[in-house]
Each structure stands twice: as C-alpha cells, then as structure tokens.
Nucleic acid binder design. Structure first.
Length: 528
RNA sequence: GGGUCUAUGGCGCAGCCAGGUAGCGCACCGGACUUUUAAUCCGGUUGUCUAGGGUCCGAAUCCCUAUAGACCCGCCA
C-alpha cells in the first residue's frame, strides 16, 4: 500500500481543511485569520440540517486550527429575507406580515426583538448546547451599516452581464428583466413585491414599483408605490443569486458548506465573486439534505422537523455531533429512532480511542480516533465515560415509570453494568426515559396461541392473581409450562412477546415482580 | 429540461469521500447447558457488493456508461 501521509486527524474534515489551505496558498491570500461561514435561516424553525451546516463549518475551523492556523466561524443570520409563508404551528396573525423582512416582523412570542431573531435564537441556542462557538452576524445590521454597499454598486452596474449569466448557468431568466436587488417598499415595508428595473449608477439609486407578486402559490398584494431606493441608505437586499458573493467578499470568507438545494445559487455566486467582484470565491463542500424516514425532505409543514432542542431531550450532544461529523456525503434518512444507535456508537468510538477495542487497519484506527476527537470538539476527555447500552436503558425506562431513576439504577447495579449509582447515569436515564415515553409506546402485537399454550397461560394468570405472592414466579412459570405440555422455551417466548413485544427479555420471574404481578396478569388475560 | 445522491447476505445497514482478506445488527437454522431468560457460548448458509467497461500488482471503494429509485433546482430566499 502506498503510504499516504495522514493529514491532521485523518477525517474528511481534515482533508477538507487541507484542500482549502492548498487552494489559498495557490491564490496567495493572507492566512492570518481564516474565516469560515455558516448561513442561518431565519424564516422558519431551524432543524438539525441548519445546525449541521454550522457544526460542520465549526469542524473545519477546528481542523484549520489544528493545522496551525487561526480561524473563526461567522454565523450569519439571513434575517433580512422576507417571510414567504407562515410556518406550521405559528400564529395566523403573522399572515399580515408576509413579504416583510423577518427582522421587521414582531416576535409572536414576544421574547425577542423580531420574528427573525426569535428563529435565529433557536439555532444559536442549539449551537450553544452542543458547544459550538461562533461570531454572530445579522443581515439587517450588515445592510444597515452599509457593509455591502460597494458590492451592491458593482453588482448593479453589471446587472445585464449577471442576468445573462444566471440565465446561462441555471436557466433562470428573471434577472434579465429585473435587477438582482430587492428594495423594501417605502410604503408597505415589503420585499419582493418591489421589483427594481433600473439602476441610476450616479445616484446609487434603484427605481422600483411595488406590485403584486407570487410567492409559492400565494399572491402577495403590492401597494402600487413607485419610488427610488438609495442602496447606501434605504433598506433593501440583494437577491440570493448574488448576495453570497457580496457577503463573502465583505467578510473575507474562505469556506462555506452548502446544501444541495442551493447548489445553483452557489454556482452563480461563485461566478459573481470571481468575475464581477474579482475576489476568489470561498472553498466549498456540498452536503445532502437530511430526509425523513420516508425519504421526504424535512419540512415544517409535514411536521417531521427535528430540532436540536428536541433531539437533546432524547439523546446527548455527542450523539448529534457524531451524526454530523461521521460523514458529510450521502443522502441521509434521519429520525429520532437513530438516536439509540448513535448513543451506542459514541461509546464504541470512545472505546476505540482509549484502546479497548482493537482496530487492525492503522488508517481506520486513526480516522476513528480522529472522529472521536472531533465529536469532542478536539478536546477529548482524559477518561472514558460510563458506558451503558442505550437500548437497555430504553427498555428499563419503559418498564419503570414510577421512581424511575432509583429503580433503573438498581437494575443496572443488579445486572452488573455499573457498581454504584452515578450522577452521570442519572442524566442518561432521564433522556432514555424521555425517549421511551415518547416513542417506544408499547404496541399490542398479535401473538399466535394454540390451545395448550392458552391453557397454560390461563393457569399462569390465575397463579399471578392469587392473593398470596407465589414464592418463586420463575419456577412457577416453568412448572406450569411442563405440566401443560408446553415447551418452557416456547412458553417464555410467548410471555416476552405479550409483555415486551420481543421474543426475549430479562429474567422473567423477578421482572414480573418488578412490573407488578397483578398488572401482568391483567395484560396476559387479554390474550386468552 | 438541468443536477445530486442511493443501489452490499432474508430484512435493516456500515464499509466507499485517503483502494489491500466483505462486515455489523436483526431474523432464521443447528449444536452446547435437562430452571438457559437484556441468557451465554459454538457453528451456519448461496452476499456475481445493481449491470457493463476502464485504471491498478490489487476495486464494494477511483473513472466512464447503463438501469432503477429518491431528492433538489427550473417560484423565492
């Protein structure tokens, strides 16, 4: 095998950082501070995909630092975007604000300065919770401070060339007719309805007319106002097709990942950056969108949104970081039911990191260890955490709903999984409990019972219902099976199927005592 | 119309992005232990790694073509 030099920690993140550095060196740009960017949507409830964009960008920042460069992550909220439709579950009163920049819409929950800030805060909170550090920027401030005015000017001067190029690159003809700039209408405060047709270069003003426009399948009424907007003073924004380029240039961004849904926009922006603004575009990596289990795009209206906050109720932050750092390629169908295996997988890579699991392929070992370090944001713990199979925890929390913490802890000690009650484990019990309460609803499954089994089951129900506690339930079950010509093995299986919905389970005697024998008798009797 | 991704034992998937013996979970089957029970241990099948070509000493992995499915774009941000 050709020995490849391992870059950084050996993961795709390191490879990406190294490609970025190679490119920057070729371009000969200053590398004193390498900025990476992540755009945060501010129009809807931010889901795990939005979080992933920032988390991965942060990973690149870490990789760059690890390779000896200074770097920072800019988290940029697109809060000058207009509200296109009211997301599912939000007050209908927002309807009147459709078309307005989200930073100019009041926060329906009243806790932030605007609707847009409310949404961004949810994402920022998610980032804080998983330990991602960032510099926060807002579109509304960026425009108000005039940070993009020179770029806007250059872009508008070249609007014909850009319009043609957009049409050529992505087949969108709109900008051959209109300027790629949306003023906020001075009369009605709306974006998009005000279509700009002419740029007066000397005065740095665009002429616009506010008229009806279609967003999605909805018509938005324009107010008919005709006016001129000063791009240096009045509020307005560049169209997405050219806006990134202006922003990259203004903030000196060297890297930004993007989802495949905005691939076309990135393509155009790269060209605008290189050819119009004459600033080399940032290095990119494209990622697939997270899809739900049916392969559908995650969208608010379908109600399949996975937010960081929701995820953290059922899994820890390591499980999110593992999900996002383990790989970037490939379409992913994602659901909360991926949490248990990610929780377990973290334990596995931790064991690998601490040498308790042997991996013979050196490159793979390096990569796994590297992944572990990234999941710990390149600050891995000195010692391993306590490992408990997450599915076991879910099973146990499913069984114990009252005094859950104590009783599950006791079981874990009985099973020899842990020696003493630990606070670290309490947290796990709590989130596993949330998971089982929410998702692992016990379904009544069809269990095939022949007559002999039924007879045996009936005997067992009677035994369990008896006033005095049978001395040894385990033995009782065994005896009943034998006395009724049922294979004990099969009988146990039936019991597990009824009680747990699986064909196996914990030792059943003590288990029945744990749940409550009368309760079990009741459940079993439903199958007679 | 343009683009991206996916295709691996019965099922679900990992491995692919830095090529080096095809793996995991579940299911199933057989065996060890006559009360074994989140059981444990041992063994197991026929995986043409979707098809065809290419590069290479070597390809599930890289390149090209094809087929099927999914998604994105062609409103807008």
């Amino acid at each position: 095998m050709v020995q490849e030099k391992i870059i950084g920690k050996g993961t795709w993140i390191d490879k990406l950082a190294s490609e970025l550095l190679e490119r920057e060196k070729t371009l000969g740009r200053n590398l004193d501070l390498i900025r990476v960017e992540s755009g945060l949507g501010a129009s809807g409830i931010p889901h795990i995909g939005s979080l992933g964009d920032a988390v991965r960008a942060y990973g690149v920042k870490l990789a760059l630092e690890n390779l000896g460069y200074k770097s920072e992550l800019i988290a940029y909220s697109d809060d000058l975007d207009g509200l296109r439709k009211v997301p599912e579950g939000l007050p209908d009163s927002l309807q009147e604000h459709i078309g307005k920049p989200v930073s100019l819409i009041p926060d329906p929950y009243g806790c932030h300065d605007s609707y847009g800030m409310h949404m961004s805060s949810i994402l920022l909170d998610g980032l804080d919770k998983v330990g991602i550090k960032y510099e926060f920027r807002r579109a509304v401030d960026t425009y108000k401070q005039g940070l993009l005015k020179d770029h806007i000017h250059t872009i508008l001067q070249n609007s014909v060339k850009i319009g043609d190029k957009i049409s050529e690159l992505v087949g969108q003809e709109k900008y051959q007719k209109y300027l790629p700039y949306f003023p906020v209408c001075a009369e009605c405060n709306r974006l998009y309805t005000a279509e700009a047709t002419e740029y007066i270069s000397d005065e740095k003003k665009v002429k616009y007319k506010c008229h009806d426009t279609e967003i999605g399948s909805k018509m938005i009424k324009g107010c008919g106002h005709e006016g001129e907007a000063d791009i240096t003073k009045d509020l307005g924004k560049l169209a997405w097709k050219v806006e990134f380029a202006a922003r990259w240039s203004a903030f000196d961004i060297r890297f930004e990942a993007y989802g495949k849904d905005i691939m076309d926009s990135v393509k155009v922006n790269d060209w605008v950056s290189d050819e119009i603004l004459k600033v080399p575009h940032p290095h990119h990596v494209k990622y697939e969108m997270f899809l739900d289990k049916g392969g559908k795009k995650i969208s608010k209206s379908l109600g399949n949104v996975i937010t960081a906050q929701k995820w953290l109720e059922y899994g820890n932050s390591k499980s999110i970081l593992l999900l996002l750092y383990k790989r970037i390629t490939g379409a992913r169908e994602l659901g909360f039911d991926d949490i248990p295996s990610l929780m377990n997988e973290y334990n596995e890579i931790e064991d690998t990191y601490f040498g308790r699991i042997k991996v013979d392929n050196q490159a793979k070992l390096t990569k796994l260890k590297g992944l572990y370090e990234y999941v710990n944001l390149l600050n891995p713990p000195k010692q391993s955490s306590i490992h408990i199979n997450y599915r076991l925890l879910i099973e146990l929390t499913k069984i114990f709903k009252e005094d859950r913490n104590e009783r599950v802890m006791k079981k874990l000690i009985d099973y020899g999984v842990i020696k003493n009650p630990e606070t670290e484990v309490e947290k796990l019990i709590e989130i596993a409990g949330n998971y089982s309460d929410e998702f692992d609803e016990q379904e009544k499954i069809a269990v095939e019972l022949d007559d002999t089994s039924k007879k045996a089951l009936d005997k067992l129900v009677k035994a369990l219902q008896a006033e005095e506690e049978p001395e040894d339930i385990q033995n009782t079950i065994y005896q009943i099976a034998k006395a009724n010509d049922v294979q004990p093995k099969d009988f146990f299986k039936i019991l597990y199927q009824i009680i747990l919905g699986t064909s196996r389970g914990p030792k059943i005697g003590p288990f029945i005592t744990d749940i409550g024998r009368k309760q079990v008798a009741k459940t079993l009797s439903e199958y007679l």
